[in-house]
Amino acid sequence: MNRSFKRSIFLFTFFIGFVFLISAEAIGQRIRVRGGDPTMTITTGIAGGQLQDVINTDCSLRYTTPRNPNRRWKITVGTICLGQSFYLSVVATNATRGTEEPEVSLSDGSPAVDLVTSIPRNSNNARCTLQYTASAVFAQGNSNDVGNDVHTVTYTLQLE
């Protein structure tokens, strides 16, 4: 084999390795939302006060971080909700790995905010409960007049 052919073989091997690395990284970290798509309905209020909040804890996150790189990970949350009328917030509770951050108010278009931080590498199938709180004030109206708020809530597992 001449020199050119050897170089070709090297390049071919390089490509295969590169693809393998990408695949390995993609498999290394995972995040899943469990519990489906919750619907929260506010039905009562206090005269002279405000509508009563509704809390939902049916959903949870499952997350796995790879052995490498040797860095900590975090989960951020953001939402898209066109024409948002009411309030929605979320907080992670009972996280088995990582640090739970304070409650996050979910507003349409706002930047993703930290939900769980300091997740160690090589965390396998860690989980946390998602506690959603829906709230509204009387002045915001009702869904019959202004429509429902449909949030597409996105959780992102990423390096800190």
Partner: peptide, 12 residues
């Protein structure tokens, strides 16, 4: 890596 789900808020 990201995952999404839908959360609906209804006010009666």
């Amino acid at each position: 890596v990201s995952r999404s789900h839908t959360v609906t808020v209804i006010v009666n």
